[in-house]
């Protein structure tokens, strides 16, 4: 009905989220608090929304364990509780699953090309062993493999790829 040349001008942007830095210690002693610093950018086109997710598969709750120290995201980061309904499969609210473990989600809406944001969490593990953190970033609308980071690896409870980091928590 409309000229194809005009329709072609209505181009869908292709965001490309990248986690550029994840900083955390290799090990700590039980009872100590460590700082997790995550930085992300968008190397592609404008994203209507880009999310950075930091999840804690060892935990059942984050109260008293994880606190947000500082961030420079446009929207206030939110805590996702285990059991809470969340989007999955990179399609957001079109596919809903229950979270199996807690997470912190930080987002910019919109997230312009080249903009970098970071978040710093203070974490106090409650038990010894390997404290695992899953990190990922998703650009929305998700319209290709470039719109998520990492592009491969472990699949999480949302059927989405995550990069795995850990801290060894040892007894004092």
């Amino acid at each position: 009905m409309l000229p194809q040349s005009y329709l072609d001008s209505v181009r869908v942007p292709k965001p490309e989220p990248v986690i550029t830095d994840v900083t955390l210690p290799d090990s700590i002693q039980l009872g100590q608090t460590f700082t997790l610093h995550v930085t992300a950018t968008n190397r592609g086109d404008h994203a209507d929304m880009q999310i950075v997710s930091v999840a804690f598969p060892n935990l059942t709750r984050t109260d008293g364990i994880v606190t947000i120290q500082k961030h420079d995201f446009k929207q206030t980061p939110v805590f996702i509780k285990a059991g809470q309904e969340i989007g999955a499969g990179y399609v957001g609210p079109q596919r809903i699953v229950a979270a199996q473990y807690p997470a912190v989600e930080a987002s910019n809406r919109p997230w312009e090309k080249g903009v970098t944001s970071s978040i710093e969490l203070a974490i106090t593990p409650q038990s010894e062993g390997r404290f695992v953190v899953f990190v990922k970033a998703i650009g929305l609308p998700h319209n290709g493999d470039q719109a998520h980071w990492p592009s491969d690896g472990i699949i999480d409870h949302q059927d989405e790829f995550v990069s795995v980091y850990s801290v060894d928590v040892t007894k004092t």
Binding site: M1, L7, V12, H46, M49, P110, P141
Partner: peptide
């Protein structure tokens, strides 16, 4: 579909 801001026009033109 999820009508993201940048998809609004594309979805609308499909609806025409």
């Amino acid at each position: 579909k999820t009508v993201w801001a940048s998809l609004t026009a594309v979805i609308y033109f499909e609806m025409i």
